[in-house]
Amino acid sequence: MNFFRLTADLMHLLSIFVLLLKIQKTRSCSGISFKTQLLYAVVFVTRYLDLLKWISLYNTLMKIFFIASSIYILYLMKIKFRATYDPSQDTFRIEFLLGACLLLALVFNYTFTFIEVLWTFSIYLEAVAILPQLFMLSRTGEAETITTHYLFALGAYRGLYLLNWIWRFYTEHHIDWIVWVAGAIQTALYSDFFYIYYKKVLHGQKFELP
């Protein structure tokens, strides 16, 4: 564990709490892409098939939290606050993402086993899981401030992981090219959002696309 990785994980936790706060406070999931949340649930379930493999208490508790919270968010969006979800705004075709990621995982992986291919699939899928949300944002052209805080925390978590990998490469000679490539792409997807968040939200304005 190092500073960057711990901070990244805490930002990831924070992003989920901000999302839950947004839904509970406004009693609405408007502006949130169900498809992105569905993809995150798929990411956690396929990645943490090794849940019973012991690494540390921290690792196990975080995995349980990520699986449970992602499924709870699906419940909130699909059942509890179903009336506030507008599918006509959430039109990104996730079938292509799922298919492409599965294909890539079958071709580019460390070991061709069931668990390992699904782990690789989850890494690729996480990299692009935010696309339906960003697509929805670009369609509506604006977002509630709390929703942008959620996206910022999520993007910061990815950016900090890049620093963690640089740190681990120099201190442990840790190499994990699948995670590096996917993580770099994932962070790059946030660059436009970061720019507008910095220009508008941090200066007290509403998040609006130019």
Partner: peptide, 10 residues
């Protein structure tokens, strides 16, 4: 050095 196959990151 640690193997990437251990997947110790979240």
């Amino acid at each position: 050095s640690s193997s990437p196959k251990t997947h110790d990151e979240l």
